[in-house]
């Protein structure tokens, strides 16, 4: 399989008044063509910042301070503004968690979708772009597309808006779709529909997806490979089966155990002790050690990333000699 995207030693830091927040610290992973890669972790672990780093849209005071982002063989961090702008929305698209705040309230849905075409293909006339937008709106399962195209975001339900956003993201047939918690704000029934829509369109458009969520059950359902993030680091990567069947990192273990399952009978759900510390107050060495019940003396030093079985990496002293 060919790698579409490879993130190498990415470091994105936030330079705050109180100190430097290492939101993404030495993160490496890759996504194959046609693959859905799930990135999972609690809120504040750096998964959204990772996504924004790939788009080169990290908000200030954040800055990418190191690493490489190889996309189709080229390092995105070396692209000029204009080159990067051309990639955004055409080769790499992004959809966000809250379709309410992500769609511009003063422009119609159709306008916002058609705009995504015109900014990349100036030769396309506005009328034609509009027609394509209407076609795409229909494609994502919104009834009455012609009328809906003229409506404003707040006139639509949450599910509709998310569909509209997917239409906007896929309109230029991108190679990679980054989906940042695309179903979190939706009702469970709508969630399932949106997921199904995304899988279907991914097949049709032959795109890869970087799927970011805190919800392990979604990851289990749709992704091929999984990265588990904690405290700005990827602590475990592997294909979905080995991660779910043989979790190695105590954090992954905890996450899986705190999720209700039908195939195991348990009296009460496990919960990881403590809560995610703020970006500025992670301990030295392994960032999880204060919440880890297996921590020992070696954890005061930073653990290396080791391959335990083929394609299954973990960053924990328990597994490195």
């Amino acid at each position: 399989m060919k790698k579409l995207l490879e993130v190498l030693n990415l470091k994105t830091y936030f330079f705050l008044e109180e100190g430097v927040g290492k939101a993404v610290d030495d993160v490496s992973f890759f996504i194959n063509e046609g693959e859905i890669f799930g990135l999972v972790g609690e809120s504040g672990c750096g998964k959204s910042v990772t996504a924004l780093s790939i788009m080169r849209l990290v908000p200030s005071p954040g800055k990418i301070v190191g690493g490489k982002i190889i996309f189709e063989g080229e390092n995105l961090l070396e692209k000029s503004y204009e080159e990067m702008r051309d990639i955004r929305g055409r080769k790499i698209s992004m959809i966000f968690q809250e379709p309410m705040v992500v769609l511009n309230p003063v422009y119609s849905i159709g306008f916002q979708i058609a705009e995504a075409i015109v900014v990349h293909y100036p030769e396309v006339s506005w009328d034609e772009a509009w027609e394509r937008a209407v076609y795409m709106i229909e494609k994502v399962g919104i009834p009455n597309p012609r009328r809906r195209a003229e409506e404003y975001p707040y006139q639509m339900s949450g599910g509709m808006r998310q569909r509209a956003m997917i239409a906007m993201a896929l309109i230029n047939n991108p190679r990679l779709l980054i989906a940042d918690e695309p179903t979190t704000a939706l009702d469970v029934t709508v969630q399932a529909q949106i997921l199904e829509l995304m899988e279907r369109l991914k097949e049709e458009y032959k795109a890869s997806i970087l799927f970011i969520t805190h919800d392990l059950s979604i990851i289990a359902e749709i992704s091929h490979r999984v990265g588990v993030m904690y405290g700005g680091k990827i602590v475990e990567v592997g294909d979905v089966f080995s991660i779910f069947d043989r979790p190695l990192h105590p954090y992954t273990f905890g996450l899986l155990n705190s999720m209700p399952r039908l195939d195991k009978e348990e009296k009460r759900l496990y919960s990881i002790p403590g809560s995610v510390p703020s970006l500025l107050s992670f301990p030295q060495g392994c960032r999880f050690k204060d919440r880890c019940d297996k921590a020992f003396s070696l954890c005061d030093k930073e653990p290396p990333l080791v391959e335990v079985e083929s394609g299954h990496f973990v960053q924990c002293w328990l597994f490195s000699k």
Binding site: F14, L16, G21, A23, G44, S48, L52, P59, G62, L279
Partner: peptide, 9 residues
Amino acid sequence: PKLRRIRVR
């Protein structure tokens, strides 16, 4: 309070 918060994702 609106300006007090520092937003980091």
